[in-house]
């Protein structure tokens, strides 16, 4: 299985967590790391190039920080531009069929803030419904996200644990696939990855 990481962070030099997290990808074979803000500083996305990349890979990772309950603008621009009607979805749009959509997200808030009692009121999974439905519309399999919560006060040990989990989880996904991905409605993949 070939993995494509679509990475979007508009200020990576200030994000210690993400600088560390992305190092995980270097250790995994058959993985293409695609830094969107580095490639398209002027938002002039090369649609044909992106489409070819997608076709060549099976597991598409959307790695981004969680800004205003969504992804950074360039990633939204990417979705707008690349996922064309008649190609990715709609009549004749089968290019992405059965590929997997997997989000790796860093969020400032703690996990307990993302529930009916917490101050964000909804779970992270609910905030990600637009992405989930986008994947569904493109006939892709949507995996529950892997979320690094509480990045504002993450200890070095906790970060290391995330790095190990993510690395092991990706290796497992790559080799075994994720059996229950289409029906799984769990909040995050974190627990599954931890136990796998």
């Amino acid at each position: 299985m070939k993995i494509l990481v679509l990475f979007a962070h508009p200020l990576l030099e200030k994000s210690h967590i993400n600088r560390e997290l992305v190092k995980v990808y270097a250790d995994i074979e058959q993985l293409t790391f695609h830094d969107l803000y580095e490639r398209y500083p002027e938002f002039d996305i090369d649609i044909e190039f992106e489409k070819n990349l997608l076709v060549e890979h099976d597991l598409i990772i959307f790695h981004h920080p969680f800004y205003w309950y969504s992804c950074p603008p360039l990633m939204k621009q990417w979705i707008d531009m690349v996922l064309e009607v008649g190609w990715a979805y709609g009549n004749g749009g089968f290019a992405l069929q059965n590929k997997m959509w997997f989000q790796v997200i860093s969020a400032g808030g703690m996990e307990k803030a993302y529930n009916p009692e917490g101050h964000n009121r909804y779970s992270i999974r609910e905030y990600l419904r637009p992405f989930e439905q986008t994947a569904r519309l493109c006939r892709m399999k949507y995996l529950p996200p892997y979320v690094v919560f509480g990045t504002h006060r993450l200890s070095r040990e906790e970060l290391n644990e995330h790095i190990t989990n993510l690395k092991e989880g990706l290796r497992f996904l790559k080799n075994e696939g994720f059996p229950g991905c289409e029906t799984d409605n769990s909040n995050c993949l974190n627990k599954w990855i931890k136990s796998s």
Binding site: I79, D80, M81, E84, V85, G86, W87, G90, N91, G92
Partner: peptide, 16 residues
């Protein structure tokens, strides 16, 4: 601009 341009969408849906 297939997502931004409603003509493209309308075309596709008409096919369906």
């Amino acid at each position: 601009d297939k997502s931004w341009d409603s003509d493209a969408l309308k075309d596709n849906f008409q096919k369906t």
